[in-house]
Design a protein around this nucleic acid. Structure first.
Lengths: 196, 196
DNA sequence: CCGGAGTTTGTACTCACGGTACAACCTCCA
DNA sequence: TGGAGGTTGTACCGTGAGTACAAACTCCGG
């Protein structure tokens, strides 16, 4: 993959739309060309194929998420508050870039198969959550869970699948609102509190 | 799609393995034929193509899950206990049929695009959880959540993505154990209880 | 202003694979 | 025993991914 100039990278984002709608395999290269306004021959000048185009879009997205999450992870306050911030940040990007996010989440298998993307997903989602869980156990704002890795996986699932549903159904996603509800459930739990 | 005899249906299950490994689009019909021991021509006698073969495997799987979940939903005890039973049942099927489950969860976008499968997913996952949440609010074993639909989506995500990770990594999945941890987190929440 | 390096793009091509057509054969039952 | 329907091999077609390549265009150093 040749270094991709920013003009191309910018145009390319529109290519995520047909991919989100139909899936990569049901999307012809010609459609990617059409959607992005970049001729097929030029696409092949920079990328070796469809897969690589999607990988480029996804790593771009995941870098952005990782950045926003890193900021939220540095915020002052309790770990519990930062967890809310992290989830909000993740949902915010989903609201901003619905198509690429849908392309990622609707085909998680591909992400798992491409090591580069798998790592980026971990950096953007699991790892920060895992850390904030540990911080919460330390500062007393979160309880100590038995298996932080499994727990961060569960949180990842809850957040992304919730977001994915909004994206698929096309209903507008209010990140703050959704994060509030989601973390409300995740933090307080579903069980009725006997003494709360 | 012609009615599929049980002999064919049984053999066909093996076709889920290459699909889980590589994804449907990276799997040739010839490979499905090889994996299942059913010649290509016979596959096309019963199905109109790859998509339909996968759809058949998925509806079969989802019917099974829906059945197991229905049983768990009828169990005596509190709604809270039934919720644990439902999650356990879902994870149990994932442990029993790893390949098909992976094929489903690693490509949720496809499920969303095929109405038949989307409905089956709802029947196997959301709807029962949504109902047990309502029952829990009624019998007092679960707290009243603001948005039961969104909550059941989050639960769906937590359960399936957790399961998917086990499947992708190939680590053995103990349904009881995993369900215990998962529902532990979901029921009690991540926040430290001030008075528990 | 020239020339060359790298970029952009159109066009023509190859080839793998999904899917179809069809005929031979087999099985089972009336 | 004959015919309907299931099973399978083989030959074929069309689509679309990816390649090859050359023409044109941009930009920069001399």
């Amino acid at each position: 993959m040749r270094p991709v100039p920013s003009t191309i990278a910018a145009k390319l984002k529109a290519a995520a739309v047909p991919i989100a709608e139909r899936g990569l395999d049901q999307t012809k290269i010609e459609e990617l060309a059409e959607a992005s306004g970049i001729p097929k021959a030029t696409l092949y000048y920079y990328f070796t194929g469809k897969e690589e185009i999607l990988a480029f879009l996804l790593t771009d997205l995941l870098t952005e998420i990782a950045g926003a999450v890193a900021v939220a992870s540095e915020a002052p306050g309790t770990a519990r508050e930062r967890l809310v911030g992290i989830v909000t940040a993740q949902l915010r990007v989903m609201a901003t870039q619905p198509a690429v996010c849908q392309a990622l989440l609707a085909d998680l298998g591909r992400a798992g198969r491409v090591p580069e993307i798998a790592v980026a997903v971990a950096d953007a989602f699991y790892t920060p959550v895992e850390r904030v869980l540990a911080e919460g156990a330390a500062d007393g704002s979160l309880r100590k869970v038995q298996d932080p890795v499994a727990t961060s996986m569960a949180i990842f699932g809850a957040v992304t699948i919730t977001g994915l549903h909004y994206l698929i159904r096309g209903t507008p996603l209010d990140p703050k609102q959704a994060a509030k509800h989601l973390t409300g459930v995740l933090l307080d739990g579903l069980a009725r509190k006997d003494r709360g």
